[in-house]
């Protein structure tokens, strides 16, 4: 206990001048899939997960009894599962994916944080949770203002023209129609979709996937954000567009409080981030300065 409090005191002194913008406190995210029949070995896996949960809860209680609620919910979960089995109401009708398993960290103003991890490690999920788009199963995310997620797969309508999608995207981000119409030409120009002819008036289903991704990025980056999260956006488009979008991200970072960047390209993480979070199957493996974490990650990946 004393060791922990000393550590936090030290950390507090270190961060005295730094203002937190995002606090993630023991976050758990669970996806519930309905109508998915149980896969092979589900019982075993389910039990193992249950045991792990119970063990975690037990340890939490032993470590100072701070989290009675956590233990309670684990017990409640078991009770309700038993009840469901009794009443025959299908627990079998749904499966759960425990995507984020108890992640905690604090991000400060002016930081650029890279999020790395292999496929399916929960990178995109945690960004969604920070943006308030995925409800937390347990734990909390505190943020300064409304964080914005700049995803490349933000839904746009394929049957509509690029121009119309621009207006729609801007309005969805809370702009007034006037602002949206003012920004339209800039956004289309930035996306570069008109470089090969008048594509902006064609429906988006006529676009190549790169063009669509570029337009989405251009729309999403048209607004300034307090906490900005970028999901793989740098991977889209050709080299020319990548350069342009990296410049745009630097601009956004200067204006935004904190930037998160999910990427599989260690190069773009090195270029833009000073701190890195490494996630692996929903847990935080490492959290530290870019070089340190990337070295450990590269070693892990090449194994």
């Amino acid at each position: 206990m004393t060791e922990v409090s000393e550590q936090t005191e030290k950390a507090a002194q270190e961060h005295e001048e730094r203002q937190p913008t995002v606090i993630v406190d023991n976050l758990h995210i669970v996806y519930r899939l309905q109508g998915v029949s149980a896969g092979k070995g589900k019982g075993r896996k389910g039990k193992a997960a249950l045991r792990a949960q119970a063990a975690a809860a037990k340890e939490q209680q032993e470590q100072g009894g701070g989290d009675a609620a956590g233990g309670g919910s684990a017990r409640g979960g078991r009770a309700s599962r038993a009840l469901r089995r009794l009443t025959g109401r299908s627990g079998k009708g749904g499966r759960e994916v425990h995507a984020i398993k108890g992640v905690s960290f604090t991000a400060y103003r002016g930081e650029a944080i890279g999020v790395i991890g292999s496929n399916g490690s929960g990178k995109s999920t945690i960004l969604r949770a920070i943006a308030g788009l995925m409800p937390a199963e347990r734990g909390r995310v505190y943020t300064d203002g409304q964080p914005s997620l700049l995803g490349v797969n933000a839904a746009l309508m394929n049957d509509l023209s690029g121009e119309r999608n621009v207006i729609l995207g801007c309005l969805a981000m809370g702009m007034t129609p006037q602002e949206a119409y003012e920004k339209r030409d800039d956004i289309i120009k930035f996306s570069g979709i008109n470089e090969k002819g008048d594509f902006s008036s064609l429906p988006m289903r006529a676009y190549s996937s790169g063009m669509a991704a570029r337009l989405r990025f251009a729309i999403a980056s048209a607004k300034n954000h307090d906490v900005l999260m970028i999901d793989e956006a740098l991977a889209t488009g050709d080299r020319k567009f990548r350069k342009r979008s990296e410049a745009r991200i630097r601009e956004l970072r200067a204006e935004a409080g904190t930037v998160f960047l999910v990427s599989h390209s260690n190069k773009s993480i090195r270029d833009t981030c000073d701190r890195v979070l490494w996630l692996e199957s929903g847990s935080l493996v490492m959290d530290g300065p870019t070089e340190e974490v990337l070295e450990a990650y590269e070693e892990f990946m090449s194994r």
């Binding site: 045991r51 792990a52 975690a56 340890e59 734990g139 847990s283």
Partner: peptide
């Protein structure tokens, strides 16, 4: 850095 338990659950208290 954080320690990860054998069951894949990060062992840090809220």
């Amino acid at each position: 850095s954080k320690r990860v338990g054998p069951d894949g659950v990060t062992k840090d208290r809220p």
